[in-house]
Every structure is written in structure tokens, then in C-alpha cells.
Design a protein around this nucleic acid. Structure first.
Lengths: 323, 323
DNA sequence: ATGAAAGCGCTAACAC
DNA sequence: GTGTTAGCGCTTTCAT
């Protein structure tokens, strides 16, 4: 900036004014400055700017895994909102590890992000307290923060969606409905299990429940165990996209079994039968979380918002198979 | 840092030493400083550090769209390498728009990223010249930079993979093989078309070629046009994952037609017939590009590297259907 | 309409 | 083993 000022024969401050589009510079002077900028290939040093102003115009996003389609969709939506607000997005994947989540958050905070959007892996967020007090805004998506922290949160109607799935299968004549969900420590998995259990009422049977990270072998083992029961399941409810895919793969080649999955996935309609799913909208969730965050950054105070997004069942065939 | 120094009864520089793990601080002093840090909830201001040191420990990644599984996989791999080097990742999606690509790159450069990994949308990268001269390192992935710019580049064997696909179909008795590819302006689409044409030789027929962004309606129209020809295609070669999915959707419910697609996708093995594809590895590409970049950041000079990653055909049924 | 000076929080260079 | 000083490039405040 000093070099530009020298080259244009003006003071540093005038260059600053031009670069920032501040008023009060003579058009001719401004033109001279702009020429010098082009000639020297100058571009403003954002670090210095941030240091001086205190605001970074950067948002941090912590998700589980960008390579998971659900979070990829959420990321893209967040990115769009962030860009629309002339900010930049730092993002990282926690891989479902609380330690990694905290590391990412702390790194982002050290970079003085203005706000954070977190899909938590852990359930203790007291470590965020100092940051919140320092003015960093935080919004949670997909899963709520751990106890003792109040912050804007956007969740899907997990229990309600699970209830819809179960009732749909009940209506199609099933009484033995298995639940194949992710690890019970994951909020969404627990909520969907709750919705499943509540909808089943007296039909609930713990032997028809398996909850752990979906892997081909364990999924196959769980299904074999359940099908070997006296009264085996006639229908399956899978707890998220990865579980659904794992189950479909484990069942491939066998006689089709009634199935409803939580989360839509590409090609669900092209399989035979088409896969009936409870659909949630990751982009919507991302957009809402980001908008919530920017509202706070704009100075909105008031109690934390808790938004629940509706989900809906899309029937494609697999959920309508008879027992 | 000043406050911490006061609280610990030491000089600023000593705090700096402790924070940065520099040697030459008495363990007892260091402990006192750490206690003060915890008590005050201090965390180093990275902007100031960057301003002073000149290095940001940040890498910028420009891709087409995080929500596309191919780029999501690439992103995740890049992220892992970046983290392993104690750096952070800024990322953005260009949405196949050259203007947006340039905007993102310039924003990243204003933030003084140490290096950039770019999946280019445009074909003119002369705008990068000043940045390169300023010392920013750049690596290209999936597509090469525009003419006149020499930089490390990682590409898949697009033409070779297309050749494999076509020869596979020829070996299964097909002589009329259509190509359904993305817009010809996209490097990978053009290369795959070239490989297709070369492998077909005298059998090449321009009426069996359609190249444009895959959309349900246009895909259906293209297929209808081709199937209405005197000598309609008996097999299809689709130019990328999105084209394959669009074609499968357009053909759903009809008699299965022989098909080989470029790019693998989730569930390709669960469709009936399984979808034969030419597989490339997005994570590998991301990892190689990132490693190349960090090698440059470590000071490696020497001529730009051009790496071509192999692809391989995975037969699953659809590519083995007879004419 | 333009400029001079102070200082954001840190690290590098050099004392002691 | 510890402290002092200068200055990274910018914005803010206040003068002119």
C-alpha cells in the first residue's frame, strides 16, 4: 500500500480509501491510484486488515465428513449463504471424533472466525464458553450442543420421521419391524430409535434392534441373527443413509424384504424395488443454520432459537412390500 | 499476550516462547505462563502471527461443487493432507463458472494462502501470473491449466479410460456405441470423447454423440433421437457419473441396454444389471495434488510435474450385455 | 479532499 | 534463561 501511494504520489490513507471504496476521494486521484494498483499488481493484505479491524469475515464449519452426501449437501448450502454475505468458509471434518471436533473449533477460533457452524461429534461443549464470551457466534446443525450450552440449533424431526416410517410399515401389515441404526451415542441415531420405539409401542422387541456404525460384516451378522429368531422381522427400518446402503448390500441377491430408510440417496428410485425413504433436506438445514448465524452476527440478540425441520416419507416400493 | 505476561510476571517474549514451544524457557517459568494462559483463556491471534511471519499455513481449494461425490472425495483427501501438514483449508465451489473460479482464487490470494489447488472451470489462468511470482504455489487437479501456464498437474487417464470402455463394448459385439458426455468445453469430457473416437476408428458416427450438461429432459431427448436412427446404438458410453445417472434414469423401465459409464458411483453394483464403469479414484487425485503442492512449499524447485493416474474398468453386468 | 501518526498482536533480531 | 525493540500492513482518529 505504501508502494502504491508512492507510485501514485499520494498518501497511504488515500490508497486505503480507494481500496475500500470510501467516499471523499477526488475521481482523478482515485483513477491515478487505481492505475498504480494495476501496475504494481497490488492486492490488499487481509491479515493486516483483520488484525486492525478485529473482524475476519470468515465462518468456520465443522461437519462429520465432506465425503458423506448429506454433509456435502449441507456444506454447499452453507457455502452459498456465506459467499452471499461476502465471507469465506473454513471447513473441516471431525470424522465423528470429539477430540478432532474440538481441535478444529479451536483452530478456527485462533483464526478469529466471526462465527461457527457445528455438527457436533462430542457432547461436551463447555470448551466453547470462553469463545462465546469473546463474541464468537455459534450455531449447531443436525445435532444439538451438549448440556449447559444454549445456542441456535437446527435439527430435523428425527423422532417424527422414524414414527412415520414405522407407521407406514405397520399400515402395510408388518408387526415385526427391525431397527438397524448407527451408534446409539449419535444424537440422530438415538432420536430415531426413540421415534421407532414410541411408534411400535407394545410391539417393541429389543432383539430386533441393532445400533452400531454400519459396516458390511456387522450388518450382515446383525441381519442373520435377526432372521434366525423364532419370530424374525418381516420389515426393516434403517437409521440413516449409510445404514440403508449397508443393509441393501447385505441383502443383495436375496428375496426382497420390506424396508424403509431414513435419508434419501441417489438412485434410490432406480433400485428394484425402489427404496422407500424418509427424506430430509441437507441444503435446507445448512441454509437455515447459516442464516441464523448471520442474523446473530448482524447483532440480533434474544434467546437461542431451536428450529426443527420437517421430514417426509417418499414411497417407492420397498416400504409397501407385504410381510 | 501482554496480559498473560503481566499475569505471569514475565516479559512478552517469554509468553511467545511458551506458546510456540520454543526452547530456552525454565520449566517452572513455562508452567507459570501456562497457568496464566489457562486462567485468562488466552489463545494466540493467528492474524497477527500471519502478518508478522508472512506464512498463513492455509491452503485454498477450488473445485466445481462439493456436493458432487467425486469432488467431495477429492476434498476430503486434500483436507487430510493439509491437516497432516498443520495447515487449514479454505475451499469454494466454482459451479463450472470461470468468473467464479477467478473470484475465489483472488479472494484466497488476498488472504495470502500459501498454496492453491485448483480444478479449473476456465481456460485462461494468466491472471495467476502475479501470484505465482509473489511465491504462491499452485497445483491443478482433474483438468490442466489454460495455455501459457506451467504448473504441477494431476489428471486421470481420461482418453485411455474411454478407450478401455469402448474396446470392452466392441469385444462384446457392439458396433454402434453412443457417447453421452458432458459439455465439450470441459476438459475431461473432451478427452473422453477423444478416447472414444480413437478407439472406434472407422465405426465413429457423429450422430451417436451428444455432449452437453446432463439434465433429465435433454438426456431423454438425445436418447430418443439416437434410438430413432436407421442404425440405432446397441450400447452407450456415458462420459461421467452425472451423465451415467441421467442416462439410467432416462432408460428406467425400458429393456436394459448395454452401458459403460466413466466414474464409479455408490450402488452401481446393486442395480440390475450392475453398472459396468471405468473407475478413477478421487481421493488419490486429491492426495497426489496436495502432496505435490506441499513439496513445492517445502522449497522443491524444478520443472512442473504432470502426473497421470490410471483408471480401470470394473465389469458388473451392464457392459457385458449382448447387442 | 487529503494526510500524519498511533497501534492492532505478534515474531525476529539482538541484547543481557 | 530472559527481556527489549522494531516493524509486519493495515485502519482509525484526528488534523489540515
Amino acid at each position: 500500500m505504501k508502494d502504491v501511494a508512492t507510485a501514485a504520489g499520494v498518501a497511504l490513507k488515500t490508497v486505503s480509501r480507494v481500496v475500500n471504496g470510501e467516499p471523499g476521494v477526488h475521481p482523478a486521484t482515485a483513477e491515478r491510484v487505481r492505475a498504480a494498483i494495476d501496475r504494481l499488481g497490488y492486492s490488499r493484505n487481509e491479515s493486516a486488515r483483520v488484525l486492525r479491524r478485529g473482524r475476519t469475515a470468515t465462518i468456520g464449519l465443522v461437519i462429520e465428513d465432506v465425503a458423506d452426501p448429506f454433509y456435502a449437501g449441507l456444506s454447499r448450502a452453507v457455502e452459498e449463504v456465506v459467499i452471499a454475505h461476502d465471507c469465506l468458509l473454513l471447513s473441516g471434518s471431525s470424522g465423528e471424533e470429539p477430540g478432532r471436533e474440538r481441535e478444529l473449533v479451536e483452530t478456527f477460533c485462533a483464526r478469529r472466525v466471526d462465527g461457527l457452524i457445528i455438527v457436533p461429534a462430542g457432547d461436551d461443549h463447555t470448551y466453547l464458553r470462553p469463545e462465546l464470551e469473546a463474541g464468537t457466534k455459534v450455531a449447531f446443525a443436525d445435532r444439538p450442543p451438549g448440556a449447559g450450552l444454549a445456542a441456535d440449533t437446527v435439527l430435523a424431526d428425527n423422532a417424527g420421521g422414524a414414527g412415520q416410517a414405522v407407521r407406514h410399515l405397520l399400515e402395510h401389515g408388518h408387526h415385526r419391524i427391525a431397527f438397524l441404526g448407527d451408534a446409539p451415542g449419535i444424537f440422530t441415531a438415538a432420536e430415531r430409535h426413540r421415534g421407532y420405539r414410541d411408534a411400535l409401542g407394545g410391539l417393541y422387541d429389543a432383539r430386533l434392534v441393532a445400533m452400531r456404525p454400519p459396516a458390511p460384516e456387522t450388518m450382515r451378522a446383525d441381519l442373520e441373527r435377526m432372521f434366525a429368531l423364532d419370530r424374525p422381522p418381516t420389515a426393516l427400518f434403517t437409521g440413516n443413509g449409510r445404514c440403508t446402503v449397508a443393509a441393501l448390500r447385505a441383502l443383495a441377491g436375496q428375496r426382497p424384504v420390506a424396508l424403509v430408510g431414513f435419508d434419501d440417496f441417489e438412485l434410490a428410485d432406480l433400485l428394484r424395488p425402489g427404496v422407500t425413504v424418509v427424506v430430509q433436506d441437507p441444503a435446507w438445514m445448512g441454509r437455515v443454520a447459516a442464516e441464523l448465524l448471520f442474523r446473530r452476527l448482524r447483532g440480533d440478540v434474544g434467546p437461542p432459537e431451536h428450529i426443527q425441520l420437517p421430514v417426509r416419507l417418499v414411497a417407492r416400493g420397498s416400504g409397501e412390500l407385504p410381510p
